[in-house]
Simulated scan of single mutants.
Amino acid sequence: MSPANFEAFRLQALIEGYDEVIEREWAPFTVLDMHTHPFGAKAVVTRGEMWLTVGDLTRQLRAGDTFQIESEVPHAERYGAEGATYWVARRKE
């Protein structure tokens, strides 16, 4: 996705009350076991693929897919053979 799209994503997130917006890149085959964050997040995958597990549900996410997670919700992440990049807006809740 283009930098212009990132700017639109960033501006919309700030309007919605998110505190920061960043781009995260993950190396191929990275695995993050169950963990939590002290912030809520909404994101859009821009490259690669990942799997997000919350409770008993695992979602496969590819470029163009979005996800949202509230603060302190246990979740796990796994990244595919190409790794992944996503834009994420974070908000302390």
Rank of each mutant, 00 (worst) to 15 (best):
N5D: 15
F6K: 06
F6M: 02
E7W: 01
A8F: 00
L11D: 15
Q12E: 15
Q12A: 15
L14T: 08
E16P: 03
G17K: 08
D19N: 14
V21L: 05
V21S: 08
E23G: 01
E23M: 12
E23L: 14
R24E: 10
R24D: 06
E25L: 06
E25V: 13
W26P: 00
W26F: 15
T30G: 01
L32V: 14
L32I: 14
L32K: 14
D33Y: 04
M34G: 01
F39G: 01
K42P: 01
A43Y: 04
T46G: 05
R47I: 00
R47L: 06
G48K: 09
E49W: 02
E49T: 09
W51Y: 07
L52H: 11
L52K: 05
T53R: 15
G55K: 07
D56H: 13
D56I: 10
L57T: 15
T58S: 12
R59V: 08
R59W: 13
R59Y: 11
Q60E: 15
L61F: 04
R62C: 13
A63N: 07
A63I: 11
A63T: 11
A63K: 09
A63G: 14
G64Q: 00
D65Y: 05
D65T: 06
T66C: 11
T66N: 11
Q68W: 07
I69Q: 04
E70K: 13
E70P: 00
S71C: 11
V73Y: 04
P74H: 03
A76Y: 06
R78N: 07
R78H: 10
G80K: 07
A81P: 05
A81W: 00
E82S: 14
G83A: 06
Y86F: 12
Y86T: 00
W87S: 02
W87I: 01
R90F: 05
K92Y: 11
